[in-house]
Design a protein around this nucleic acid. Sequence first.
DNA 1: CACTCCAGATTGACTAGTCAGTCAACGCCC
DNA 2: GGGCGTTGACTGACTAGTCAATCTGGAGTG
Lengths: 211, 211
Amino acid sequence: MATAAKQGTVDKRRLILDAAVRVFAHQGFHHCRVSDVADEAGVAYGLVYHYFRSKEEILNTLFLERWQIMLDAIGEIDSREVPARDKLYAVASFIIDSYRHDPDLMKVIIVEVTRAANSFGALHLDKIREAYLGIAGIVESAREQGSFKSAIPSEFAAMCFYGAIEQLLTAWIFELLPRTDEEYEGAKGLVVEAICGGLESAHNGAGSSSA
Amino acid sequence: MATAAKQGTVDKRRLILDAAVRVFAHQGFHHCRVSDVADEAGVAYGLVYHYFRSKEEILNTLFLERWQIMLDAIGEIDSREVPARDKLYAVASFIIDSYRHDPDLMKVIIVEVTRAANSFGALHLDKIREAYLGIAGIVESAREQGSFKSAIPSEFAAMCFYGAIEQLLTAWIFELLPRTDEEYEGAKGLVVEAICGGLESAHNGAGSSSA
DNA sequence: CACTCCAGATTGACTAGTCAGTCAACGCCC
DNA sequence: GGGCGTTGACTGACTAGTCAATCTGGAGTG
């Protein structure tokens, strides 16, 4: 049995982290008090400061824990011997399943970190960039190999792809899209088709003057 | 001469709004004090409350002012008699030019409202949704007419398109992309090409099992 | 033109409340 | 019995919003 969870002893640190996810997700990092987290965890106020230096450190911990898992997943996916489209489908699946599995945690990460340009986003920029680079790597191989257009820089493509997925999650967070298993599954294929295959029909003859 | 600006009289309300944009953009809505806004505007603290009921009302005003301009622009673009791709190019141009023209304002709108699921985002959900619907309308016409794939629902496509653009702005906000005129101009064409034309080469024969 | 008068603009000290973080003490387990 | 885990009352610092006082420009009057 693991060190922390032996006997009936519960890992209070983990309890606090899990409680923080729920509280941050429902009230927002700025609108909740540390006492809310302590109460939710069923733990005394002061104990939070025994395990974490500050309220911010809780959020940082949550982000880093989860983000690293995603970076590792992207790295593993990139190493597979399959077409780029399948890799991107796997990445989309991983992110969407992460949301499906723990919507509160993903909401906190996206809303409070990934998109928080004035607070935690800036702090974790390097980690966020790593994800872009991982996706860009997948695109880059496909470009070199000729299956992806060389006209679109891979970092740019990665940004569009990741942006589309994050917007999807945002739509689920905002309840603009139904949160059902079918919706999640369908979205994986659709987002890949939209970004890789494009919106235009293959037989499209519509002219255009855009660059 | 307009009522407010006749003679040497300055419109203090406007002064406060403009100062708020700068302060919110650089410090973040939550990390700045009302006194910072007043100081930046060169105005007494109390005057802020003469013109606005609360700190939040300043942000709401900024968002609604600017967002309505964008909604009007999308509506106007949709009514043009050009291919869907050109319409989407025009929408992308409008948003990117908005950022180029006033990065602070766009940063505030995106970071503090559009992506703030726990505070202002929820408040302005309907307005935000209106933008999606406007873009979806453009896609829908193209689907009916056959130039866009019918397999991808138009709201879904709109979300991917808008998400890609917002991610681009975020990259500029985070300084992950160079902020130059060439970059802005290039991005307009690239984002449309990525979403409408897709990342894959036309002659792409790479197989795929995703769907 | 000189003067009064007032409504709206402007000021900034102050209040009332909030909340992150501290700390001294307690207790439980090894 | 000692150290780590745990407690929660308390403090110190901060700030959104109030308000009574002051200012200012222009309309009305003789």
